[in-house]
């Protein structure tokens, strides 16, 4: 299945397409949740805010037209709602304790996380770019990279279980190496195009694999 950009999904949502909504939520769920995990909130508060972020998106579907800005919009909305929730919780505690107004600086962020709020959002949006890169890669290339780097098809020592990968993906063990190289190269280009990291990934086009590309998306 080919990659459908956020912009198109947003447009379909504006037209009332619930399937496009599901695709948007599935694509961005981890981005939003990763922001919420960085804030000191009770689990049910996180779950409520998770829903509120997407409820806000439904509400602002007409205003969010730039698909490329959607991850940042979601991250910012999530962060703001976390602040509000933390502020409310603190106000309640202080009201109960009879003390003055709360200090807003760094409201709710986990103090053990020494990185700033901006970095939290940047990290989350970069992760989102990786997910988008994998999604754009699609097909067996994505499956292969996820199998190689993920934990589901690894042996006891953490090494990829090539026999299992071969069986699951219908790929000869001997062709995993070359295919991995082509897929990684392709992902590097995709990530570069998406502006991931320092962009070095996108400058690798001068060297492309010359073998046939069985998993190349058309």
């Amino acid at each position: 299945m080919s990659f459908v950009p956020d912009e198109t999904l947003l447009e379909r949502c504006r037209d009332g397409d619930a399937a496009a909504w599901e695709a948007l939520v599935q694509r961005h769920r981890r981005l939003v949740w990763s922001i919420l995990l960085k804030h000191r909130l009770r689990e049910e508060e996180r779950e409520d805010i998770f829903q509120q972020v997407f409820a806000a998106l439904v509400e602002h579907l007409d205003g969010v037209r730039d698909g490329k800005a959607l991850p940042a919009w979601l991250a910012t909305t999530a962060r703001r709602l976390c602040w509000r929730a933390a502020q409310r919780a603190r106000s309640s505690r202080e009201a109960a304790a009879g003390v003055g107004a709360a200090d807003e600086d760094g409201a709710g962020i986990d103090p053990e996380d020494t990185r700033g709020e901006r970095e939290v959002v940047e990290t989350a949006t970069e992760r989102q770019l990786v997910r988008e890169g994998l999604e754009r890669l699609g097909g067996k290339c994505r499956e292969l990279l996820e199998a190689l780097f993920g934990g589901s098809m690894q042996g006891p020592s953490g090494e990829p279980n090539y026999a299992l990968i071969s069986e699951r993906l219908g790929l000869r063990v001997g062709s995993i190496g070359p295919t991995r190289a082509r897929c990684l190269e392709k992902l590097a280009r995709v990530l570069g195009t998406l502006g991931f990291g320092d962009g070095a990934a996108g400058r690798s086009e001068g060297r492309s694999a010359d073998q046939q590309r069985p998993f190349e998306d058309s």
Binding site: E126, V130, L134, L145, E146, F149, L184, L191, D198, A201
Partner: peptide
């Protein structure tokens, strides 16, 4: 580029 991609994934 490949290192960046590999580390990211």
């Amino acid at each position: 580029g490949m290192r960046t991609a590999a580390e990211a994934v």
